[in-house]
Design a protein around this nucleic acid. Structure first.
Length: 320
DNA sequence: AAACAGTGCAACCGCTCTGAC
DNA sequence: TGTCAGAGCGGTTGCACTGTT
């Protein structure tokens, strides 16, 4: 289409609104109601363009607007809604009474987005960012046990393994290292998508190193490892931390659900009855189960499969 | 104490889309 | 069918505030 901007007139005021302007705008809207933004400034005695008046009203002066910090529930809602709706701020705002799309957008960009990135979660896809895993420290560890890696690789999706290795200083180092030790075979890499049975990975590690069994006597995993896996510190969580604790939940045993990003992703934990009911109750899951478009089903399924990484991967820290 | 850098937020810009006329 | 106002969005800017050097 292409229209000339509404604010191209000379002499119209820009910048922060004064209390006097606010009063004029509120008084006019109280009498005449919102709308007719093009003629409103003139009738209200404002040297502003209509769009500026509309934005000021919708983003700041509306009586139903809630000011102040976002609550824990609001922050959690924003994250979950964003995982479902994307950058549709108005749609998100419609589900958060008293909050405007602009306010939510700003809050997302200045707080939530940064925190997601800091915790290794892609704010666009809400997926864990495997490229941020600090595997270089793992791979350079003198305690690296290649026989464990051999067992791991039979369980890991080869693509995942490839992705993991991409973070090493020399991206091919791990693959080369493994291949040299005949730890990877080309058939696996090229043709096979291993089927991972719940708890298989964890059991294997525990068999190999019984001392690694989840045990209350064990100290918490190193902070860096927790953060790299999208897990927040467990001590004295702040409101924001609590959000992300939910965002990256743990199972009954206290081990991480690496991909507990949104409700739809919780469905990965089908081995644990604890999560399944809650999964079914989520909008995306119920859409999937009760019908919905093919796109929705595909999206739902692809998200289930996309992050199928053994939950006990974080225990690498224990046995190295 | 002053300068500087980083952060948060309100507001703006430019554009597209939608629906009414 | 075309035009226009309003709504929505992503990106950006400007400024106040705070923390650091």
């Amino acid at each position: 289409m292409g229209r000339s901007p509404c604010c191209d007139k000379e002499g119209l005021k820009k910048g922060p609104w004064t209390s006097e302007e606010d009063t004029k705008l509120v008084r006019y809207i109280q009498i005449h109601g919102p709308g007719n933004w093009r003629i409103l400034p003139k009738h209200a005695g404002l040297e502003r363009c209509g769009k500026s008046c509309r934005l000021r009203w919708t983003n700041y002066l509306r009586p139903d607007i809630k000011r102040g910090r976002f609550s824990f529930e609001e922050e959690e809602s924003i994250i979950q809604l964003h995982s479902l709706l994307g950058n549709k701020w108005s749609a998100i705002a419609a589900r958060l009474p008293g909050r405007t799309d602009n306010e939510i957008k700003n809050y997302w960009n200045t707080h939530i987005r940064k925190r997601l990135l800091r915790n290794g979660i892609d704010p666009v896809t809400h997926a864990p960012r495997l490229d941020l895993l600090d595997l270089s420290s793992i791979l350079t560890s003198p305690h690296l046990n290649l026989s464990n890696l051999l067992r791991l690789q039979t369980l890991l999706n080869p693509l995942t393994l490839t992705l993991l290795s991409s973070n090493v200083e020399n991206p091919n180092m791990l693959l080369q290292k493994l291949q040299e030790n005949q730890l990877l075979d080309s058939h696996n890499l090229n043709n096979q998508t291993p089927t991972f049975q719940p708890n298989q990975f964890e059991n294997l590690i525990n068999q190999q190193n019984p001392s690694n069994l989840a045990d209350s006597s064990l100290p918490n995993p190193p902070q860096s490892a927790q953060n790299n896996l999208g897990q927040l510190p467990t001590t004295s969580p702040s409101t924001s931390d609590q959000v992300f604790q939910n965002y990256c939940p743990t199972n009954e045993n206290g081990s991480n659900f690496f991909y507990g990003v949104s409700d739809r992703m919780k469905a990965v934990d089908l081995s644990e009855n604890s999560s399944f009911d809650s999964v079914i109750s989520t909008p995306s899951a119920s859409t999937f189960i009760n019908g919905g478009t093919e796109d929705e089903k595909e999206s739902f399924c692809s998200n289930l499969l996309r992050f199928e990484i053994p939950e006990s991967l974080d225990q690498l820290d224990y046995f190295m």
